[in-house]
Write a protein that binds this DNA or RNA. Structure first.
Lengths: 130, 130
DNA sequence: TATTTACTACTAATAATTCCTAATAAGGAA
DNA sequence: TTCCTTATTAGGAATTATTAGTAGTAAATA
């Protein structure tokens, strides 16, 4: 059966702090914020709870998969799919629409481009007949 | 004036190796490949040259800016812009089209989603009047 | 060929994240 | 309430990916 999830003070505070800002903070930034309310909280706890909250769908992680950079020698325009499990990246054939790029500055930003990355499951990670 | 770029054996081999595969390798994978042809090449050289090749537009780096994860407590669908210089992330207001998600499996992959991230320059990095 | 300095190999340092372990504390049962 | 089970924690050490520092090497131009 599923491992139960307990409601802890740390987890509650991390979520509250994340929801109270619109700055899309890093784990470290959240650690500092949480620490101001719970001085003994540790960075590992912040990481673990963020992972857990992402899994439960209560929080979104902005980064595309791997923390490891990948390079492509093919500079012609095309898209990529990244396997959610193993991180493998493959080119995607065919034509897809790019999102519109806003021409006027929005909020604080002048937008200059878009990055699009598809995500999926590769056949080896999908497993046989699954 | 601009610093000139010399043509080195290392750089040539790194580029050749990258162009000879379609696996979107990491710096480390390229290091191993290059090392098989140039046993004394160092990992730092691979990193430096990849950066340089990306700058010159001969190579593409798949990863979005920061290697640091950012989190968002707002799980309703919306887009983000990331500043190319400082890495700051902001929500983007308004409606934008999402790229189509291919419904049939492509190559090796079953595609399940897309990640879209706009990139731009924030006002503080753009500088006054620039 | 000589000279300049971009570039290299090597090593040490940093940054972001994960792992490890004994101690703590949710939350259900008695 | 008190006890028990075990998910979760704090704290620190370990990993992983990347960047910096440095003395020596080698492109490219004169």
């Amino acid at each position: 059966m599923e491992k139960q999830t307990r409601s802890t003070r740390q987890r509650k505070i991390i979520l509250e702090e994340l929801r109270s800002v619109s700055s899309h903070p890093t784990a470290d930034e959240l650690y500092v914020r949480a620490k101001s309310r719970l001085p003994n909280i540790s960075l590992g706890t912040v990481y673990r709870n963020l992972d857990l909250l992402v899994q439960k769908g209560e929080v979104v992680c902005l980064e595309t998969a791997g923390l490891q950079r990948r390079f492509d020698g093919d500079t012609t325009p095309h898209y990529h799919v990244r396997c959610r499990k193993c991180g493998k990246v493959q080119d995607l054939p065919g034509e897809f629409r790019l999102p519109d790029i806003p021409s006027a500055p929005l909020n604080d930003f002048t937008v200059t481009g878009v990055r699009v990355e598809f995500e999926g499951i590769c056949s080896s990670c999908a497993g046989p007949l699954a």
